[in-house]
Design a protein around this nucleic acid. Structure first.
Length: 478
RNA sequence: CGGGGCGUGGCGCAGGGGCAGCGCGUCGGCUUUGGGAGCCGAAGGUCGCCGGUUCAAAUCCGGCCGCCCCGACCA
């Protein structure tokens, strides 16, 4: 009965993840190619996912007391150059503005690749006293990094994000901020997007250019490759010194502030597609799905009562859920079922003449669990709420199961290199923290040290045999 | 940035010196509607861009641009 075969037009996920990914992004109408190299147009359906992420985060930031502001798109070259490590890290990817109209500029302007260098000068101006601290501001916007190769959502020349920039009186307070943000991001990923993550610090070689250290959230995609899902940087006093951001402390001495910065990007939408999609297309977690419930009325053209009832049901459910009533006359129910599955709507309600007679509707979850389930119209609201929660839970459990079965401990160098090369997932090894050991493992595997979790080291370094000083998860990466 | 592939109606493709075609979609009409409906009719293309060869170029040659896939580098 159930037409469970793959959807036309898109390849099977396990046969070619890349081609499947591109096809799903386009066919689900999340995104389209722009007529300029390396750039994407995020379409309304895709953008509404981003808006759901924004809404949730803004709620969190309201609770924590962060404020939102807007800083310039342009950064004068001399500002970008003030922090040596920072400019060295970003210079190769900067897009430069050299003319205003036909007039050459006296100083070229960077299109922001990240905004520390335009925000810190403002903080220098605004911060005088310890009483002005902390400053905790974020902005929503886009940045530009001139990438050589691009992929929809995962790497484009311009991408959308929020970036938080905070300044604090003490190092402890700044680090606490980093960890607070990290926890918010973790709850976003796991609770809202149903994507479990490994959390910890980046090794020195992978930290943000200009940071003292970087906290990261790493997710695992179905091909066994890691993807960075969010970062939170402890910047120490590097930027405070470079931009002269000082305050007069209680003890009447002048001190540099301690700063942090942090971000998540529209890349998360790509991670969502990869993590949850299947041969039938996209599959969105209920908590961020732009449409949580689609109502498909059946035989409504010759049975006006069906459409009336469907409209009433939609109005009722809209009080609590994001609902779409698909009353287009030009498509058959079967066509709509396939279409909304392709577009990832987590829950469908079918309502036809037979259902009306029995005062019921048919509930169908996107993952097929429970099949087609008749539910009395009188209790449908509760049934929908319960099913949406159940779908959300199942999605997270499936993803967690995948992460667990693809996080593997390696006790020998041979085992580690083999597992990393094969892209089996996160490979947990003991490490002496020596750069040469890291380099050797990278060179031998093509993998990267993705994250150092807060787990006590034990035993010996998998490369050199010296006493271990850290646990590190290696993986190939996006 | 290397290696491979591809640019022809909205989408997917065929064609390969001389009329630009097919399927899907779109528009109109009628019949349909519980897993991608049927029939009839219609509209829609400077064949990615620039240059060259030729009486004649979608087709041959050169250059450029863009996209996809696989690697190497970065959110």
């Amino acid at each position: 009965m159930e037409a469970k075969e793959a959807v036309k037009e898109i390849p099977r996920k396990h046969e070619s993840l890349s081609e499947w990914y591109t096809a799903v992004c386009l066919r689900a109408e999340l995104v389209d190619y722009a007529p300029v190299r390396g750039c994407m147009v995020i379409r309304p359906y895709g953008w509404s996912i981003w808006e759901a992420i924004q809404r949730w985060l803004d709620g969190e930031f309201r609770r924590t007391g962060h404020q939102t502001a807007a800083f310039p798109l342009f950064i004068p070259e001399s500002f970008l150059k003030k922090e040596a490590e920072h400019v060295a890290g970003f210079a190769p990817q900067v897009a430069w503005v050299t003319h205003g109209g036909d007039e050459p500029l006296g100083e070229r302007l960077a299109v922001r690749p990240t905004s520390e260098a335009i925000i810190m000068p403002m903080y220098a101006k605004w911060i005088q006293s310890y009483r002005d601290l902390p400053v905790r501001i974020l902005q929503w916007g886009s940045v530009v990094r001139w990438e050589k190769s691009t992929r929809l959502f995962l790497r484009t020349l311009e991408f959308f994000w929020h970036e938080g920039h905070t300044a604090h009186r003490t190092a402890e307070e700044a680090d606490e901020e980093c960890r607070l943000i990290l926890d918010i991001y973790r709850r976003l990923l796991e609770g809202e997007l149903a994507i479990p993550v490994l959390v910890g610090k980046k090794p020195a070689s992978e930290k943000f250019a200009g940071a003292e250290w970087t906290y990261t959230l790493e997710a695992l995609m179905p091909d066994g490759q890691a993807i960075q899902a969010g970062t939170s940087h402890f910047l120490g006093q590097h930027f405070a010194r470079a931009f002269n951001v000082k305050f007069l402390d209680r003890d009447n001495t002048e001190k540099y502030v301690w700063t942090t910065s942090w971000a998540v990007t529209t890349r998360l939408i790509g991670a969502l597609v990869l993590a949850h999609g299947d041969d039938r297309g996209l599959f969105l977690p209920p908590r961020i799905a732009p449409i949580q419930v689609v109502i498909v009325p059946i035989r409504f053209e010759d049975t006006p009562a069906v459409l009336e009832r469907a409209r009433a049901l939609a109005a009722q459910l809209r009080e609590r859920f994001r609902v779409h009533l698909d009353d287009r006359e030009e498509y058959t129910p079967g066509w709509k079922f396939n279409e909304w599955e392709l577009r990832g709507v987590p829950l469908r309600i079918e309502l036809g003449p037979r259902d009306l007679q029995q005062e019921q509707a048919v509930l169908v979850a996107r993952d097929g669990e429970g099949g087609k389930r008749p539910v009395p119209l009188g209790s449908i609201e509760g049934a929908v709420a319960a099913e949406l929660e159940a779908v959300q839970r199942r999605m997270f459990e499936r993803a967690r199961e995948f992460l667990q079965t693809h996080t593997l401990a390696a006790t020998s160098y041979a085992e580690a290199t083999e597992l990393i090369r094969q892209r089996r997932g996160f490979v947990r090894v003991q490490w002496c923290l020596d750069q040469s050991c890291e380099d050797r493992l990278r060179e031998d595997t093509g993998g990267f040290p993705r994250v150092i979790p807060e787990e006590p080291p034990e035993g010996t370094c998998v490369v050199c045999g010296q006493p271990s000083r850290a646990v590190v998860y290696f993986a190939r990466a996006y």
